[in-house]
Amino acid sequence: MASVMPAWTRKRRMRAPPSRSVLGDLRETLGLWRLAASLGWLDVKLRYRGSALGPFWLTLSSVVMMASMGVLYARLFQINLHDYLPFLSVSQLLWQFGIANIIQESCTCFTEAENSIRSIRLPFGLQSLRLLVRNGIVIAHNLIVPIGIFALYDAWPGMIGLMSLPGLVLWSLDGFAACLFLGSLCARYRDLPPIVGAVLQVAFYITPVIWKPTQLGAKGWWLIYNPFYPLLEIVRAPLLGHVPDRTVVAVAVGVSVVFCMAALATFRHTRSRLAFWV
C-alpha cells in the first residue's frame, strides 16, 4: 500500500530529547499558539453545542443579573442608577469572567487534560494558554452587557479606557501563572479546588466589586492590602474613565511579579511529576 499521505512534513519538528525545562515548556507553548486557540475555541463551542443562543446564554444571564442587581443595590446603597449601573456592569464582568472563573478553572486545567497529557507529549503551558483563550472568548461575548449599559447612560470612558489594555496584559500573565501554580498544586492535592472556591467567595465580598471603594471613605485604608483590589482597579478604573491611582498600579504590578515568580518556582518543581499526578 503506497502511503496516501504526502511526506509528513511538519513545520514544527518534534524536538528530541524533549525540552526538560520550564523555559523550554514556555517556548514550545508559544510555538503552539494556534493549537491553543483551536482547543480554547472548541471548548467554548462544545459547552454550548445544541443550544440556540450558544455562548450568548451567558450574556443573557448577565443581562438579567445586571437588571435585578442594579435596581436592588442602587436602592440599598442609595446611589442613582446612572452612576451605579455602568460601574456594576464592568465590575461584575471583570470579576466573574476575568478573575473568578479563570482562577477556579485553572485548578483543573491539567487534570482535565489528563488523557492527552498521558498520551501525547505537549508542553504544559499549552493547557494554560487554552484556558486563557477560552475565557477570553467568553469575556468577549459578555462585553455586550457593559457596552449596552454605557450606551444607555451615555457613560463612555473616552480614550482613558485604552489604559486598561496594559492592565489586561498583566492579567493574562497572572492568569497564565495561576494555571501553572494552581493547576499543578490541584493535580497533586485533589481537595484544593473547593478550598480555592471558598477563598474566592470571601474575596468577592471583601473586594469592592458590587460596592464602591469610596463608600468606605477613610475607613478603606486596608483595601490596598487585598491584592484583588489593586488588580481589579487597574483594569476597571480606566474603563470607567478614571486614571488609576499610582499606588494601586505599583501594588498591582508588585503583586503580579511576586505571584508569577512563585508560580514559576512551583512549576519548576512540579513539572516533571505532573504526568504522574494527573
Binding site: A16, P18, S119, R121, S272
Partner: peptide
C-alpha cells in the same frame, strides 16, 4: 518524553511519534 526522570540518561535523536492510546 511523557515520563521524565533525572536518574541516568536518555537520549533520543530524531522525529518521534508515539502510538500510545488510540483515543
Amino acid at each position: 518524553g511523557i515520563y521524565e526522570s533525572s536518574v541516568g540518561s536518555l537520549t533520543l535523536h530524531g522525529e518521534t511519534h508515539a502510538l500510545l492510546d488510540p483515543m
